[in-house]
């Protein structure tokens, strides 16, 4: 395994390295071998300094060019392909960016791609969830170059070391295929779902968009991120980027509170790896209670304000 030469493709936003990338480093460490990190974008040098201090990093390649902002797949994949030659493994987080860029990279290299890896068995054998996480598949890659996305929540963030060297590489530049127009980020004061320590999610039991304020009130007390079930999204209570589940975000916080969520398989697929699960639901038969460490059968409209008051 120690022959592996790994390139981790970092994600950065305005010079800040994503927390998902620090977890991909943990997966890289489990592969063994030497690990380089690629940081690309208009403010890459700042994020590159951070990447260089992550435990296990051998060297950092920084490519400072606005063409790589927003991880545009067409531009990123050309850059990664130009740097791929010496590497045995190319790793990125299985975020919406990683899942957008890495299959394109794999096809340009003429190899397969292994998505959403949650465990590393050896340099060529990996475990990944299929069928909405109801089955785990152990797969062996037949490719000399392995292009992998890593589920960040299945790994731990790595610590820090004394800084590794940072070098720059030639930019492959703008491929002229796509233009970024704008973005609308939910953001605000609350942490993002992917990296949050505590998450409170609401379901159809909330009954309306207005009632989601009850969830937000508790979230603010706990410094938690707000999530939702697909039913709540489909009912139009909240935007889809809050959706936790097979068709939304996969999360694994230390504490996950499900309020008014029945516990459909597709929702459980997205949160069942949380360390502690709390379910609050008025229906004592709700399947969510079967996975909850602590279950409270109660009326949400009393329990949530009480929780907010007493926390």
């Amino acid at each position: 395994m120690s022959d592996a030469r790994i390139l981790v493709i970092a994600e950065q936003e305005k010079g800040h390295l994503s927390s998902a990338t620090t977890r991909v480093m943990d997966a890289a460490a489990r592969l063994g071998g030497s690990v380089d990190v690629l940081v690309a974008g208009s403010q890459s040098s700042q994020a590159a300094q951070h990447a260089a201090r992550l435990t296990g990093v051998n060297s950092v390649i920084s490519v400072e060019d606005g063409a790589f902002d927003h991880m545009l797949a067409e531009n990123m994949s050309a850059l990664i392909k130009s740097l791929a030659e010496p590497y045995t493994h190319l790793l990125c987080a299985s975020t919406t960016s990683g899942r957008n860029v890495m299959p394109r990279v794999a096809a340009l290299l003429g190899v397969g791609q292994i998505s959403d890896v949650i465990a590393i068995e050896s340099a060529d054998t990996f475990v990944r969830p299929i069928y909405a996480g109801s089955v785990l598949a152990t797969v062996r890659s037949r490719d000399a170059k392995k292009v992998i996305t890593i589920r960040p929540t299945a790994f731990e963030p790595v610590g820090e070391q004394s800084a590794a060297s940072v070098s720059s590489a030639d930019s492959t530049g703008e491929q002229g295929l796509v233009t970024f127009v704008d973005e609308q980020l939910a953001g605000g004061e609350r942490p993002e779902l992917g990296g949050a320590r505590v998450i409170i999610s609401g379901g159809r039991g909330l009954g309306s968009a207005e009632n989601f304020r009850l969830i937000e009130g508790v979230a603010d007390r706990l410094g938690a991120a707000v999530g939702a079930s697909r039913a709540a999204v489909d009912a139009g209570y909240v935007p889809n980027d809050l959706q936790v589940g097979q068709t939304g975000k996969m999360v694994a916080p230390e504490l996950y509170i499900a309020a008014g969520i029945s516990g459909a398989v597709q929702h459980l697929a997205g949160m069942k790896d949380s360390k502690v699960i709390v379910a609050i639901n008025s229906d004592e038969e709700a399947p969510i209670f079967q996975v909850a460490d602590y279950g409270l059968v109660a009326d949400l409209f009393q329990a949530l304000p009480e929780l907010e008051r007493k926390l």
Binding site: L72, T96, V178, F180, V181, E183, Q184, A186, G187, E192
Partner: peptide, 14 residues
């Protein structure tokens, strides 16, 4: 308009 982590992004292409 694409669903991305944390929100939405709009791209233009030919």
């Amino acid at each position: 308009t694409r669903e991305i982590d944390g929100g939405l992004e709009t791209l233009s292409m030919s």
